[in-house]
């Protein structure tokens, strides 16, 4: 794949899918497990500023590569060939996205946010009313909690996601914007470097704008609940 923007987009898309799956799992655990276990999860998890890097990508990425290679004989390096099939590229982008998801702290932030939002909205009058009318509280809260948790977790984790992107792409040899910027910086091609960093910054601004817009939209909707 010769399109760095597309490759980076592929990795970020995998991150988004992983976030959705993880948030769903967290919601199921929080909503359907017994209360004491939920409390255990909430209290014992270290609340380090609520977000941010949990494990440096420089630790997580080499270990993942090494373990996959030594234990399962799987080479997780990105296939840099002229005629790589899209399915192969899609599969190869999963491992960097998984490492990025863990290294940027998105997983931990999502877990905390889902728990916090569920506990907050569960105590609101409109949900109590729907429970009193015989409706299911988790079903009523699913969309609300998921969208709120995903919005806050992404807005908190975005700087770390983009910060660790260069390292993850360099370790996994993913030909994305981060790796391109690194190569440009090493050969001291200032114009190329500015282009790559500019694309990265634009992508970051687009993600931030989208997240803040969805948060604001959600905020006005939630205000109507009273």
């Amino acid at each position: 794949m010769s399109n760095p923007l597309g490759t980076t987009g592929l990795v970020l898309a995998w991150c988004l899918i992983l976030s959705l799956v993880w948030a769903h799992l967290c919601f199921v655990v929080v909503a359907y497990r017994r209360r004491v276990f939920v409390d255990t999860l909430v209290v014992t998890r270290p609340a380090v500023l609520g977000s941010g890097m949990i494990m440096p990508a420089l630790v997580a990425a080499p270990l993942t590569l090494l373990l996959a290679f030594r234990v399962a004989s799987i080479n997780l390096l990105f296939p840099v060939t002229l005629f790589a099939a899209p399915a192969e590229l899609l599969r190869a982008a999963f491992a960097p996205a998984l490492v990025l998801f863990c290294a940027s702290g998105l997983g931990t932030t999502l877990t905390q946010q889902v728990q916090r939002e569920y506990r907050y909205w569960q105590a609101q009058p409109f949900i109590r009313l729907s429970v009193a009318l015989g409706k299911s509280a988790p079903r009523g809260l699913y969309k609300l909690v998921m969208s709120k948790a995903l919005g806050s977790a992404w807005s908190q984790g975005l700087p770390w996601l983009f910060g660790e992107l260069v390292v993850v792409e360099a370790v996994f040899n993913v030909p994305g914007l981060g790796l391109e910027a690194w190569h440009m910086a090493r050969i001291q091609d200032q114009i190329g470097l500015l282009q790559c960093v500019g694309w990265l910054v634009m992508l970051y601004i687009a993600c931030t704008t989208l997240t803040s817009w969805s948060n604001r939209r959600l905020g006005t909707r939630l205000a109507s609940y009273g």
């Binding site: 700087p159 660790e164 910086a185 910054v201």
Partner: peptide, 9 residues
């Protein structure tokens, strides 16, 4: 709000 790693790089 700028990613620290990107800024330092």
């Amino acid at each position: 709000s700028i990613p620290v790693c990107l800024a330092a790089f």
